[in-house]
Design a protein around this nucleic acid. Structure first.
Lengths: 122, 122
DNA sequence: TTTATATATGAACAATTATTCATATAATAA
DNA sequence: TTATTATATGAATAATTGTTCATATATAAA
């Protein structure tokens, strides 16, 4: 009986060379989790609408609340999620708190995501 | 008593000109939901690891299963989510099913997301 | 000071979802 | 044919999460 030329896993069908090569190049645990976390934060319709609005202008909480036509509490909760993820930043102005996008990667992501969505429609 | 020059919402603090301008430029309901759905699919660590692997090479299910060190059923379930979202595509080869990224926007998104994550660390 | 307004947040509830287990399908080998 | 291997999938469970409600904090106005 002939030896297999490849190492074995629990699985029998494994293409070892490719798998080992891929394994060495894959993201580490931490970056992978952080990346997933970033997309998770972007993966909610309320938060996407907030980012879409903030992409167009700095806005206070009640502006956003009016734009989305929803509960102020819900908006504040989602702004907190976005702030914690450092996707938006805020500054105080009198009674208001003004929110804006934190950096240019975010608008890039939203733009690129939109392109993909548009492509799928064709 | 002087009339306000702006329309009113339920909220009192509204900055009407900005809000109205933003309102006309925002994404419609459908694109916004599709975009959120795309990010939601990307927003899971298992799926990110699968995409990270597929970015490096076309792979069969049991290769992915071995790479992630998890249950074959779990991997297949997540591959289905990715397939339904048209983020990956598959082709049959004998007993195996080979998966790969569906289009270049996805790798762009993953790359751009990684950049953002890296930036935050500094 | 008191009153009104803007925002934030804890708790509870409902809805969604990732994983596991068991099993089904499909392809190949014997 | 039967046995084995690769993949897919329904059901159940556990965990996560978005929204609402009630309320707290903070700023400004009276």
């Amino acid at each position: 009986m002939q030896e297999h030329e490849h190492d074995r896993c629990e699985e029998q069908c494994i293409h070892s060379e490719v798998v080992e090569s891929v394994r060495t190049q894959m993201l580490g645990t931490v970056p992978s989790e952080e990346l997933a976390q970033l997309f998770k934060v972007l993966g909610d319709n309320t938060r996407i609408r907030i980012l879409d609005a903030l992409y167009l202008s700095e806005l206070c909480v009640c502006d956003i609340t009016a734009l989305l036509g929803m509960n102020q509490s819900a908006v504040s909760h989602q702004l907190r999620v976005l702030r914690d993820a450092r996707i938006v930043k805020s500054r105080k102005q009198g009674k208001n708190v003004l929110y804006s996008l934190d950096d240019e990667h975010i608008s890039g992501l939203v733009r690129m995501g939109s392109e993909h969505v548009r492509e799928l429609k064709r």
